[in-house]
Amino acid sequence: MTDAKFYEQTWDLQYKHALGETTSRFLEGLTQQKIWGRRTTDGRVLVPARSYDDQTHMPTGEWVEVGNSGTIEMFTIVYEPFKGLPVPPYALVYVLLEGADTALVGYLKGLDLKNQKDAIAALGIGTKVYVHFSKTPVGSAADYWFELSK
């Protein structure tokens, strides 16, 4: 049999995505250490702020500032390296902030993840956390993360 031949390629594609008025205002809020949500027609507060409601398909209205602390609704700790993604370990959490009806995703930082058993024991549904804002915000969703409440 002939030696197998291969063709190698890398896709290097560039995009500059417009984020629109609602997302832009939420991200601007991060630079002022504020988390903003939007109220739906049936009174729920969507965080992060979205201009329309997944349940009713109606536009959302009022801007609502929610608290900077809340509880973990789900979490995972990643130990496997994935090409193109950050070096593990890292913890990801979804947090229901005070006054919000939907959970905000983010890194959970400040917890030693090397000992898997201890790290898992420190986290759970209902564990209290707070939003930690970057001291050098750039106006992106990377401007915040969560840390365990003291």
């Binding site: 890292y90 995703v105 983010g106 969703a141």
Partner: peptide, 12 residues
């Protein structure tokens, strides 16, 4: 806008 800075994938 909201989620890409966090490394979600089909396993996480």
């Amino acid at each position: 806008g909201y989620e890409r800075p966090v490394p979600l994938n089909t396993i996480t």
